[in-house]
Lab assay of single mutants.
Amino acid sequence: MLDDRARMEAAKKEKVEQILAEFQLQEEDLKKVMRRMQKEMDRGLRLETHEEASVKMLPTYVRSTPEGSEVGDFLSLDLGGTNFRVMLVKVGEGEEGQWSVKTKHQMYSIPEDAMTGTAEMLFDYISECISDFLDKHQMKHKKLPLGFTFSFPVRHEDIDKGILLNWTKGFKASGAEGNNVVGLLRDAIKRRGDFEMDVVAMVNDTVATMISCYYEDHQCEVGMIVGTGCNACYMEEMQNVELVEGDEGRMCVNTEWGAFGDSGELDEFLLEYDRLVDESSANPGQQLYEKLIGGKYMGELVRLVLLRLVDENLLFHGEASEQLRTRGAFETRFVSQVESDTGDRKQIYNILSTLGLRPSTTDCDIVRRACESVSTRAAHMCSAGLAGVINRMRESRSEDVMRITVGVDGSVYKLHPSFKERFHASVRRLTPSCEITFIESEEGSGRGAALVSAVACKKACMLGQ
């Protein structure tokens, strides 16, 4: 009897593995994704193909990295998701002549009506938060230079001027797309009239992360975010950046690689679950690469896999709870928690219980395998993109072996128990001629924006502006 049951459990697990095998990517698959990513990057950089390229390769006008001589107080704003952060950054000489960066910050959550109302409502709310922060720190009387981390696709015309191309991540505030974001912020500050600010720089969160990590390690020339969304930036040779005049030196390019796949480059790798996630998203047909990796989508992918296993009578005796059938019910943090389970399955059992399920031991094991399959594919897909960037940098610099540091931020990278190990191992397999160091950014977005502002202020002083 026991043997029969054991055989049935083994057969069930084997069927589960057959279904989950769809998520496995072979090294040849990853090399294919990497080569296609490089081709799209090239198209994004070139003037004649930029418009139709899915990977936009947006110039950021960040050319210099901090040298350690900029000092002063800077205000930093960070808008990239449902939370908005205001930070005071003091850049100065530390002990023994070292450079020191001290920060104080406060988080504000953005109400739904500000995210989806008008641009005026959104930026009025942001300036209200700045006003509140300055009151708390008794700094209303000071006109501070301000660095703005704005983590949406922007076409820069200068370091302090950028046109919002399109909202992502659930934002829909009308009247912002096609307009200068810094102008919208300046107008809102003017409307309030109770404080003055000098907006000197606007950067993407990947750029802010790279600059913040450069402060720790001067070989950091790539910034990457794996959180709600997924994106990367890197220092490109100016001669390859056709959208900006000049051939000397390097400029940081914001790849906006989340949109890779929007022209069909990933079609052969998309599964039924991916198509369902895409169809029910706020932007169907867009940001397809990001939807395979980002935390906004990972939990939902797992939920759809679990429903398939229920329908195949391989999980929960073929019956799903009402909660499990509800879109968004299986949160991405559950994926991390399930994979963090120590082996007694308590954590998995508790999560499934909150979803109205009474799982068996085998159910718990199957749910864990589903989570591992989805998150491992995410790590491997992400590795193909980064390997594409790094191999490109090595080739354009004609280096036999390139040493490089990548600064990384984002909740999936930082909080998932195995993502970074799987990701690092896969990147290294795909970049055999590179020695890569990964560092995690601390308060990256805010500190990085302030350091970019410090560079901009120093330049302005040198130019006598």
Rank of each mutant, 00 (worst) to 15 (best):
Gly285Phe: 01
Gly72Leu: 01
Lys458Asp: 01
Leu276Ile: 05
Ser340Lys: 05
Gly295Val: 08
Gln347Ala: 11
Lys102Ala: 07
Lys90Glu: 07
Cys457Ile: 12
Gly92Ala: 08
Leu165Asp: 15
Gly285Ala: 10
Gly223Gln: 01
Phe74Pro: 01
Cys233Met: 01
Val253Thr: 04
Ser396Val: 14
Lys31Asp: 15
Lys172Arg: 12
Thr376Phe: 12
Gly448Asn: 10
Lys143Gly: 10
His218Cys: 10
Phe330Arg: 00
Ser281His: 01
Thr168Trp: 14
Tyr297Glu: 12
Glu51Asn: 02
Arg325Ser: 13
Glu9Leu: 08
Gln26Asn: 15
Ser100Gly: 14
Arg369Gly: 08
Gly92Val: 11
Ser373Lys: 13
Cys213His: 01
Phe316Ala: 06
Lys13Asp: 15
Ala450Gly: 12
Gly448Val: 08
Ala384Gln: 00
Leu307Glu: 05
Asn391Lys: 10
Val101Cys: 08
Ser353Cys: 02
Arg43Ala: 07
Leu386His: 02
Arg250Lys: 10
Thr405Ser: 09
Gln219Val: 12
Asp198Met: 03
Lys459Ala: 09
Leu415Ser: 09
Ala176Ile: 02
Tyr349Thr: 09
Leu25Ser: 04
Phe152Ala: 13
Arg7Phe: 15
Gly328Cys: 06
Glu17Trp: 04
Glu248Gly: 06
Ser280Tyr: 15
Glu236Arg: 01
Leu165Ile: 14
Tyr349Ser: 12
Thr118Phe: 05
Thr376Glu: 06
Ser54Gln: 07
Met8Thr: 14
Gly147Cys: 04
Tyr215Cys: 11
Arg333Glu: 12
Ala173Glu: 11
Val335Gly: 02
Lys296Thr: 13
Glu421Asp: 11
Met197Leu: 10
Lys136Phe: 08
Ala10Tyr: 06
Pro153Gly: 08
Met238Asn: 03
Ala208Lys: 02
Glu443Lys: 00
Leu307His: 04
Ser64Ile: 04
Glu48Val: 08
Gly193Val: 06
Ile348Met: 04
Lys291Asn: 00
Asp205Met: 03
Asp267Gly: 07
Asp194His: 05
Gly147Lys: 01
Tyr413Arg: 02
Glu237Lys: 04
Lys291Phe: 00
Ile110Lys: 00
Lys13Cys: 11
Arg327Ala: 14
Asp274Ala: 00
Leu304Glu: 09
Val408Arg: 00
Leu415Lys: 08
Glu177Trp: 12
His317Lys: 08
Lys143Tyr: 04
Glu48Ala: 09
Val335Glu: 00
Arg422Thr: 11
His105Phe: 10
Leu301His: 03
Met57Asn: 00
Val277Ala: 09
Cys220Gln: 00
Ile163Pro: 13
Ile126Gly: 01
Ala53Asn: 02
Leu2Asp: 15
Gly264Pro: 00
Leu357Arg: 09
Leu315Asp: 02
Phe419Ile: 02
Ala21Tyr: 15
Phe260Trp: 06
Ile189Ala: 06
Phe269Asp: 02
Asn166Thr: 12
Ser373Phe: 05
Gly44Lys: 01
Phe148Ile: 08
Ser375Gly: 11
Ser426Phe: 08
Met298Pro: 01
Thr209Gln: 04
His317Thr: 15
Asp135Glu: 12
Leu288Lys: 09
Val33Gln: 02
Pro153Glu: 06
Ile439Asn: 03
Ser76Phe: 07
Val207Pro: 09
Trp99Tyr: 06
Leu77Val: 12
Met202Ala: 05
Thr362Val: 04
Ala450Asn: 07
Val55Gly: 01
Thr65Ala: 07
Asn313Phe: 05
Val199Glu: 14
Cys364Asn: 04
Leu430Gly: 00
Lys15Val: 08
Glu28Met: 14
Met139Tyr: 09
Glu268Ser: 14
Leu47Asp: 15
Asn180Gln: 03
Ser340Arg: 11
Arg403Tyr: 13
Ser360Trp: 04
Arg358Phe: 05
Val389Leu: 13
Met238Tyr: 11
Tyr61Glu: 08
Glu395Val: 10
Trp99His: 15
Val302Tyr: 00
Lys90Ile: 06
Cys434Gly: 01
Gly97Cys: 07
Tyr125Cys: 06
His50Trp: 09
Met34Pro: 00
Cys382Arg: 02
Gln323Asp: 12
Glu421Cys: 09
Phe195Asn: 03
Ile439His: 09
Arg85His: 13
Thr437Phe: 10
Asp344Glu: 06
Ala282Tyr: 06
Arg447His: 14
Met115Phe: 12
Gly227Ile: 03
His317Asn: 08
Gly175Cys: 05
Glu399Asp: 14
Thr362Gln: 08
Asp409Phe: 10
Glu300Arg: 02
Ala188Pro: 02
Arg192Pro: 04
Thr405Gln: 08
Leu165Ser: 15
Met121Gly: 10
Glu395Ser: 10
Gly444Ile: 12
Met107Asp: 15
Leu276Met: 12
Val16Tyr: 08
Tyr108Lys: 06
Ser127Val: 09
Ile404Ser: 04
Lys291Gly: 04
Ile390Ala: 11
Tyr215Ser: 11
Lys90Val: 10
Val181Thr: 07
Asn283Phe: 11
His218Leu: 03
Gly295Leu: 07
Asn83Trp: 11
Glu442Ser: 06
Cys220Phe: 01
Thr431Pro: 00
Gly223Met: 02
Ser453His: 09
Gly328Trp: 11
Asp400Phe: 08
Lys56Ala: 06
Tyr413Pro: 02
Thr118Ala: 08
Asp247Trp: 03
Phe84Ala: 12
Gly249Pro: 00
Val226Phe: 01
Ser131Met: 02
Gly448Asp: 06
Ala201Phe: 07
Lys161Glu: 11
Arg333Ala: 05
Arg394Cys: 05
Thr116Val: 08
Pro359Arg: 04
Tyr273Asp: 01
Leu270His: 13
Ser109Lys: 15
Ile130Thr: 03
Lys161Arg: 13
Glu331Gly: 13
Glu67Val: 08
Asp158Glu: 08
Arg377Gly: 00
Ala10Phe: 12
Asp262Ile: 13
Arg303His: 02
Ala21Pro: 00
Asn391Tyr: 10
Leu164Asn: 15
Leu25Tyr: 08
Asp247Val: 10
Thr437Trp: 05
His105Ser: 07
Gln239Tyr: 11
Ser383Asp: 01
Ser127Gln: 00
Arg63Lys: 10
Tyr61Lys: 04
Tyr125Ser: 09
Lys161Gly: 07
Leu386Phe: 04
Gly444Phe: 06
Leu185Thr: 07
Ile404Pro: 02
Val86Ile: 04
Met121Gln: 08
Met139Trp: 05
Glu290His: 12
Glu256Met: 10
Cys230His: 00
Ser127Gly: 09
Ala282His: 02
Gly343Met: 10
Glu196Met: 12
Leu288Met: 15
Leu451Ala: 11
Gly246Lys: 03
Leu306Met: 10
Tyr234Asn: 02
Thr149Lys: 07
Leu292Ala: 12
Asp341Gly: 04
Arg35Gly: 15
Glu51Trp: 09
Glu312Cys: 10
Gly229Ser: 10
